[in-house]
Amino acid sequence: MTQHSLELLSPAGNPAALKAAIEAGADAVYCGFADRTNARNYPGLNFDVDEMIESVAYAHSKGAKVLVAINTFPPAGEMKSWKDAIDNAAMAGADAVILADIGVLDYAANKHPNLRRHLSVQASAANPLSINYYRDQFGVKRVVLPRILSVDEVAHVAKETGMEIEVFGYGSVGPMSEGRCFLSSYMTGLSPTSEGACAPASHVTYKEDGDFVLSCLGDVVLNRVAKGEGAAYPTPCKARYVACGKAGYIFEDPIALNALDILSELKKAGVTALKIEGRQRSKAYVAEVVSAFRKALDAVETGETRSTDDLSELSEGGRQTFGAYKKGWR
């Protein structure tokens, strides 16, 4: 494998997407088991144990790593699925597990001390004190930073913790306290942090209303999108609310985070790995986004100046932003 100073980490919702990611130039792939132990628990998605074993072997044969996300929070008395997931990831030969819950971290640290532990963004650890706690207590080697920090703040965290830093390069803007958002549970009755889906497909409906489309979560209409208008995922944070008589996106616009044009700044800030979001997206998405980032990262390494690929067609709402990295929003 060619060594890159910034590791390119791709999502994979199934073994075909994992292959597409590696073919497109990913250094590592993250994925999850087909149950509620990971934050993308959708029907037909994810890996069973046999698929995980085969996929890890395939990735290793191509010089790529596999990180297994086990990043939801077990409810009281229901630890078995999470313990099984850790044991199965270790048995499959995964290169690391991505964890959020301190009980799960403790189990992994004690039962499989040689299995690398990364701290999931779902732990919402965004300052050196918090991150160092996870490092010292559970031997965490890498932290995935929440998408609320500017490039300068990322540099500060990297300097103060001395940890491997992973940040999001492409995906949702995600300006909430990840792993602590319960907005959707008021509409679905299900906990997004324990069930592994913020807007479970079983609770989402779309209805045509003339030239408009209504998106609903449970009984709540989240949005009414006109023809030609960019649509958003049906999550409460991206719903259009009426406030002071005016409908608008109060929490989060339908827009995608895209750090393609600031990769050298992130590298200078001490970032180790660049994560692309989207395990629920198709292998076509994975191939296109990974390929764009591979080219841009290679250009950063060689100091070449080149224009980056346009990913706007794949972006939520058809628009893109640097998000908190350049904190320019209201």
Partner: peptide, 13 residues
């Protein structure tokens, strides 16, 4: 055939 992304199509209707 998995040649295009369903979510991207959904975003643009």
């Amino acid at each position: 055939q998995g040649r295009i992304d369903g979510d991207a199509l959904f975003f643009t209707r």
